[in-house]
Design a protein around this nucleic acid. Structure first.
Length: 190
DNA sequence: GCCAACGTTGGC
DNA sequence: GCCAACGTTGGC
């Protein structure tokens, strides 16, 4: 089967690109969306290319390249009562509801290819991630799109003269961010 | 923090 | 099956 390409989202507070670089390889569990589940179960195979995307980050965008190191397999965390990804409705089902994959770290870009940049780059007009309101955490990407992002990411260095650095916008303030994070945690506890 | 967009749930 | 209420995502 032909090699495919994917974009996988994560919040850096949950798992950052540096965590990934340090680990070298990681499991990709906890996806609880049926559309993404179908990709994990049916389509994502060992050897596929992965764009590692950081959401709610500074800056938000594609931070690294990775590769699928294990094709889809049942997400056993869904059956672990003590785990945060436990899914009570998965219990006792003959077939697993949720799936996961493993991905191997390949390369961290010198600078993140930001969401703003993705929106500007010719050839990426159809990428799902730049679409407003697109929340799918695993998205299919074409080979052409993957190659463009790879090229742009590899070419990254300090901004060209006269160009405004995309990261100049400092985080509004760290306290607010932390608070927001706490709120999210609390919300997900129930 | 704000809030738009989206997915899921549940009453009917 | 409809759809309002609710929870979550995620850019800003």
């Amino acid at each position: 089967m032909a090699k495919k390409y994917w974009l996988m989202k994560v919040e850096p507070e949950a798992y950052s690109v540096d965590d990934f670089a340090a680990d070298g390889e990681t499991t990709w569990e906890g996806v609880r969306n049926y559309q993404a589940r179908n990709f994990l179960r049916d389509d994502i195979k060992k050897g596929d290319g992965v764009l590692f995307y950081q959401s709610n980050a500074n800056p938000t965008g594609i931070a690294a390249l990775a590769e699928v190191s294990k094709s889809g397999y049942p997400d056993h965390f869904a059956l672990d009562k003590k785990h945060k990804y436990f899914d009570p409705k998965s219990e006792g089902k003959p077939e697993p509801t949720w799936y996961m994959v493993d991905i191997a770290f390949r390369k961290k870009f010198k600078d993140v290819v930001t969401l703003a940049e993705l929106k500007e780059i010719k050839g990426l007009e159809d990428m799902l991630v730049i679409r407003r309101g697109q929340r799918l955490s695993i998205q299919p990407v074409t080979k052409a799109e993957f190659d463009i992002v790879k090229k742009v990411g590899n070419a990254k260095k300090t901004p060209v003269e006269g160009e405004v650095a995309p990261t100049q916008k400092k985080s509004a303030n760290a306290a607010a961010k932390a608070k927001n994070h706490a709120r999210k945690k609390k919300a997900s506890k129930k």
